[in-house]
Design a protein around this nucleic acid. Sequence first.
DNA 1: CGTATACATGCATACGTATTCACAGTCTAA
DNA 2: TTAGACTGTGAATACGTATGCATGTATACG
Lengths: 349, 349
Amino acid sequence: MTEKSVTSIDVAQLAGVSQPTVSRAFDPNGRIAPETRERVMAAARALGYQPNVIARGLSTQRTDIVGIVMGNLTRSFFYPKVLENLTQQLQALGKQVLLFNAPADRPVDELLPRVLGYQVDALVIASTTPGREIIDHCARKGTPVVLFNRQVPDSPAYAVCCDNEDGGRRAADALIDAGYTRLALLSGIQSTATNTLREKGFVEQVLARGLPEPLRERGDFSYESGRTAARRLLERHDRPDGVFCAADAMALGLMDAARFELAMQIPADLGIVGFDDIPAAAWPAYSLTTIRQPVEMMVNQVVELIVPDPDPDEEEDTVEQPTGRLALLPCQLMQRGSVRPVPKGQSNE
Amino acid sequence: MTEKSVTSIDVAQLAGVSQPTVSRAFDPNGRIAPETRERVMAAARALGYQPNVIARGLSTQRTDIVGIVMGNLTRSFFYPKVLENLTQQLQALGKQVLLFNAPADRPVDELLPRVLGYQVDALVIASTTPGREIIDHCARKGTPVVLFNRQVPDSPAYAVCCDNEDGGRRAADALIDAGYTRLALLSGIQSTATNTLREKGFVEQVLARGLPEPLRERGDFSYESGRTAARRLLERHDRPDGVFCAADAMALGLMDAARFELAMQIPADLGIVGFDDIPAAAWPAYSLTTIRQPVEMMVNQVVELIVPDPDPDEEEDTVEQPTGRLALLPCQLMQRGSVRPVPKGQSNE
DNA sequence: CGTATACATGCATACGTATTCACAGTCTAA
DNA sequence: TTAGACTGTGAATACGTATGCATGTATACG
């Protein structure tokens, strides 16, 4: 058993050619006579030969593997879709995804040795805290790094973000336009850029519209954290009447605590705006008004940065991209039932 | 730029040893003097050297890469957790996960060339339909294949399943014990073993307990499919009063349609039992009674099959495992609010 | 003191592919 | 007809690591 696997040499022998010819047959641009290629392919089929990607990687210095570092996949219910889309698109382009798991609240540098060892062609960091070390190291090796909804200033990494700050502003507008006045903020993991920017946009807009500084409560992006934070927040004497949650999962937890533990009416007693637009936000049991992240667009951007267009006339001079290039994609307010309708004629002036 | 990456030869030069010595320094079992190892490691640190896993893979015929084939990650909300757990555990054991995406309803054989090319040490197939070809090919190469919640009879693949058939039976008992009598079944993708077995267990138990054949409606495991199926199912003149859904996501869709479109009371007018125990099932907005799959246990089993215990006294004779070995893990009924309480003294006799 | 043993290390080579170079044959243009 | 360009192929080699084998050195035992 454990049959020795069939190599390009075996195929070469059967087809009566040399090993390099087999290699060329499998290279779409390989200079080879059509009839030779056909003969090689026939032999390959007969033997069940499949080029060894590992060996090829050693030879070409390209593995067609893209590393993806992700934190808790199941915390906010947002990243599974990102991962799914990314995997599908990359696979369609001949790349495969190597998945790394990292804690969300520590820099990902601990994974550095692993990631480097696998000679990935590119690295996507999402849902965790990027570290300088890993970014710089990849930069030296010429490995593109794309940060997903994260930013590291003055670094050579690309960043693809939805406009979190603007999203925060829109959330503020949505609540204020609807007439809520005692606002609160339920934030996520403090060390993340997603949280910081959403928070900043929200608070600044609240102040800009002439309302007092919103209350603050902390969570970790998860449903449970939203639910427990809700108890603290809604039992205060100066209980807020409108809350922006930095992630939908927290908003759902908050909503459940408010409705089922504190018997509050939504949106009458309490207006809630989330962030992400996860599937459950649209379910009628929640009908959560939220800020949608343009996942498809973001993933497209990432893919574009990672796998260079094969077209551009072989201008292989690698037009040096501006370091720290940032793609900022627009978010969109999804109006649903967790915020009461805007009174006629009133809106963000 | 694109600095040439540092190899074991560079480290060897700096440390004043030969290249194989560097290799041995990084091998935990390598015969090497402690002080030499320290010197090598110091040199490696100084240069930022990291062994090239690809090259190692070529030499050792082991890549430490485990392939995972998954279908729609976001359809039933069950697989993200599986993937997360699996990735974490394998990573802790020094393996990495290479992710393959496959359509859920077609055999995964189309991916065969890809998977084979990457020389994975093991292959896990979940959430999609396994194909004979890929299994047989891996068997010939000595690559273990583990099917997650799937089975292919008489194949050399391992299978780790929760006891889907028993889960179906328990669902039937839960509904019948609570006094529901006009039962229905909302099934998932027909070609999957998970669906077939849950269906079988449920129907057989319903008949065994003396009730008439349950109605049947079809979905695809997704929330939306549950919701649309609900409309068809609940507008019949012989509307059921108890439904078993082959996945929680469908149950939630069904529940929403029943409550918000048809103004039915749950559990009074309609009892619902799901399968999986996804996070949302426990949320008070749903409080779904469901059959829990023991995810941790299942993942542990998978990992055990994939990475052999290093302990067993080097009995490397590879005690031939029985082909088609199946691990059947128990599921558990989670009693919540979507089924009315069992009347006193009544239960599965 | 001599021999057997364990240990530490270097040398040579293998893993499977891609690629550079050289060579022979074919085709085109004068 | 011949010089040149072009095409298709094989030989040789590189990619970075692991490992079998041989060698040399230190240790144990009689």
